[in-house]
Nucleic acid binder design. Structure first.
Length: 238
DNA sequence: GCGACAG
DNA sequence: ATCTTGTCGC
């Protein structure tokens, strides 16, 4: 008997990856679990360096009320898939899956650095990762892959739908007044409104969510340390 | 065919 | 994403 969310093989070609995305898309649940209570938020990211094919990944779990780090984990894994626009998850998720196994404190929502449904086939890394880890997830990207947002006010909190081929696939969200917006879209077990709500709550001061900022700093420190986890695994100021 | 193209 | 110093501006 096959599990509803049996992990698939990562050893695939770009053509096979596209076919897999079309199947994964059908498994997406674009609605949050009834009565979802978010007490912990987490951010995921990976860092790489030019002459090295290693992906240094990390995740940081934050208390949703204070946005203070409560747990973290890292993992260094060889990268076997190239960066291809639209297939980012096949390059980064093998690394994040190793990190996820080491993360003992489970978050209620996981925010990815990349798109959710604002994707050519509506299966960005946030969707794929949400399905893989079976967790409510959000895609929060710094730039667009597809779609066009309408004009949005300069004040923090302003939003404008991102339309692609006649449908709303995400939302441009101004997390900081007068600064470029971030592009938010639901991953899995999530809807657009809830995704926007949490990205704004997680970004009280800077353009990017604290989840992403913490994860970004963690993986960069991890990479520069040459893959020496050591103190990076336990609580340490960001 | 041409241009666009998350990280 | 990464390679990289200084510099303009609040």
């Amino acid at each position: 008997m096959e599990s509803p969310r049996a992990p698939h093989d990562w050893n695939v070609t770009p053509t096979e990856a596209v076919a897999l995305q079309k199947r994964l898309r059908e498994q997406l649940i674009l609605e949050p679990p009834p009565g979802l209570r978010v007490t912990r938020l987490a951010g995921a990211d990976i860092s790489t360096e030019k002459g090295n094919d290693t992906g240094y990944g990390g995740m940081v779990v934050l208390d949703a009320a204070t946005l203070e780090p409560v747990a973290r984990a890292v993992a260094a894994v060889p990268l076997t898939f190239p960066y291809v626009p639209g297939l980012l998850s096949f390059r980064e998720l093998p690394v994040l899956a190793a990190v996820w196994k080491r993360l003992t404190v489970r978050p209620d929502v996981l925010i990815f650095d990349g798109q959710g449904t604002a994707h050519p086939r509506r299966v960005g890394i946030a969707c794929h990762g949400g399905l893989l880890f079976d967790i409510p997830s959000i895609g929060c990207a710094k730039s667009l892959l597809v779609g066009t947002p309408g004009k949005l006010a300069e004040r923090r909190g302003a939003t404008s739908p991102i339309t692609h081929k006649g449908e709303v696939v995400g939302m441009a969200v101004r997390t900081r007044a007068g600064v470029s917006p971030v592009y938010v879209s639901p991953g899995h077990r999530m809807d657009l409104d809830t995704a926007v709500e949490w990205v704004l709550k997680a970004s009280p001061r800077y353009r990017e969510p604290e989840t992403t900022r913490h994860a970004h700093r963690l993986v960069n420190a991890f990479r520069r340390s040459g893959g020496e986890a050591a103190e990076l695994e336990e609580g340490r100021p960001g």
